[in-house]
Amino acid sequence: MSEFLMPAETDPHERIYMAFPSGGYTLGDTAEEAEAARSTWAAVAKAVARFTPVTMVVDPQAESDARRHLGEEVSYALRELDDAWMRDIGPTFVRDASGELAAIDWNFNGWGAQSWASWGKDSKIAAQVAQLEQTARVQSSITNEGGGIHVDGEGTMLATRSVQLDPGRNPEASAADIEAEFAKQLGAQKVIWLERGLTRDNEEFGTRGHVDIVACFAEPGVVLYHDQQDPAHPDHAISAEVRSLLEAATDAKGRKLRLVPVPAPKTLKDEEGWVDYSYINHLVTNGGVIACCFNDENDAQAARILAQAYPGREVVAVDATELYARGGGIHCITQQVPKR
C-alpha cells in the first residue's frame, strides 16, 4: 500500500537543490577544465534562480570558488561532497496522505558501486538535505537515484531495467520487488519499463542507463522521448525500441500515451566516442524550463518543442556540453522541493 505520492515535476516548487563541483573527474585535470565545470554549474544555477530559489550544497574547500561564481544569487549549505550530481545523491521529495513532505533516501552507492566513483560523503547528502528542509527522511529498501525515475504525479512512472535490476544496485531484487517499493515510496501504481538507457550512458563512465535522458512526462498521458534520427548512431535503435515500448503502454489510468519525439542533436560524436546529448534532460521549475543546448543546429527546434510541451513557461537554454562531457545534463544536477 502506498504511503506517499511523488508529485509531478511540473507542480510548483519551493526550492531547487544543486551541488557545486569540487574535485575529481568533475573538475578535470587542468585549471581550464575546472573553471569550465564551475562556470557551467553556475550558469545553470543562475538560470534556475530566475524562477525558483536555489540552495547550493558546497564542500567547504570549494566555498570560495562557489561564491566567486555565484555571489548572492543562491543560498549556500556547506557539506562535504564527493561529486556534484544532486538529482542522484539528493533525496526524492514526496507527500504523505496529509500533504506533508517527506524525503526518500535511495541509498546512493556510486551508480552501482562503479570502480571510478566515490560515494562515502555523497551517500549522506540525502539525509543532510532532508535535515536542511526539516522533513522526515525515509530510508528506501532499494538502491536507486533520482535520475533513474520519472513520474506523472498520478501514479505512473518510467524506469529502466538496466538501472533498477542492476546487480551493483539491487542484486537480489526482481522487477516485482522494485515495483512494490516504488508503489510504497512514490505512489506508483504502474511502472512503464524501458529496457535500457542511451549507449554512452551504458558505457564505463555512465549510470548504466538512467531514464531521465531517454523519456519524461510533460503532463499525464504525454511523454517526450529522445529521438535519434541518424541511423549511424547506435541510439537510433534504442530510440526505436523506446518508441515501440511506449506505443504499447498504458498509464495507471488506462490511457494510451501521446508521444512527442524530441530530435537528438545533430552532433554524433566527441573525442570519447558516441555522445548521449539529449534535450530530454531538462528541468521544469515554476515559470521556467531550463533546457540543454549544445551549439547544435537542432537546439532551436528542441526549444520550440519544449515550449509547446510546457505552455506558459519560459524556455531558457544553457550550454550543457561541459555537463555531458562529465556524464550528465541539467536534470542530473538539480533536485526539486515541492511547494509547501
Rank of each mutant, 00 (worst) to 15 (best):
A34H: 02
E72R: 01
E63A: 01
V48R: 00
V74L: 07
Y76I: 03
A45K: 10
A77M: 11
T52P: 12
R38N: 07
R79A: 12
T52H: 04
E35K: 01
A34G: 05
A45G: 09
A47W: 01
E32Y: 06
E72N: 12
E63C: 04
A36L: 03
V44F: 04
W41C: 08
F51N: 12
P60K: 03
A37G: 02
E32D: 06
A77Q: 15
T55L: 09
A62R: 12
E33R: 00
A42M: 04
P60T: 03
G71C: 02
A45D: 15
K46H: 09
R79V: 09
S75P: 10
E63T: 04
D65F: 01
A49R: 04
A43P: 11
E35D: 14
E35L: 06
E73V: 05
F51I: 01
T55E: 13
V74S: 02
M56L: 15
V54R: 07
P60L: 05
S39I: 02
A45I: 07
A62D: 14
S75A: 03
E32R: 08
A43V: 00
K46W: 02
D59L: 00
H69P: 12
T52D: 08
S39F: 09
F51S: 10
A42D: 13
A62W: 04
R50I: 08
A62K: 00
A31D: 15
A42R: 01
V74H: 06
E73C: 12
P60Q: 05
A45N: 13
R68P: 11
T40K: 05
R50W: 07
E35A: 03
T55N: 07
E73L: 06
A47F: 01
V44D: 06
E35T: 04
H69V: 03
A43K: 11
F51T: 02
E72H: 00
D59C: 09
S39N: 14
M56Y: 13
E32M: 03
A31H: 08
D65P: 05
P53Y: 06
A34I: 00
A34C: 03
V57F: 10
V57Y: 05
A36K: 14
R67I: 11
P53V: 06
L70V: 08
V48I: 06
S64H: 13
A47S: 10
K46C: 10
Y76D: 13
E72Q: 13
A31Q: 09
E32I: 00
A31N: 13
A42C: 04
A66K: 04
P53R: 04
R79D: 13
V58W: 14
W41P: 06
V74Q: 08
T55Q: 08
S39K: 14
H69Y: 08
F51G: 02
H69Q: 14
K46L: 12
A37V: 07
W41V: 04
A31P: 15
W41L: 11
A43R: 09
S39E: 15
E35C: 02
A43G: 15
G71H: 03
H69N: 14
A66G: 11
S64E: 15
P60M: 00
A36I: 09
A62F: 02
E63S: 10
V57S: 10
A31E: 15
S64K: 13
E73K: 02
T40V: 05
A36N: 12
A45E: 14
T40G: 06
T55G: 08
R38L: 02
Q61P: 06
V44C: 01
E63I: 07
V58T: 07
M56H: 12
L70M: 07
A42F: 00
A66F: 01
E33K: 05
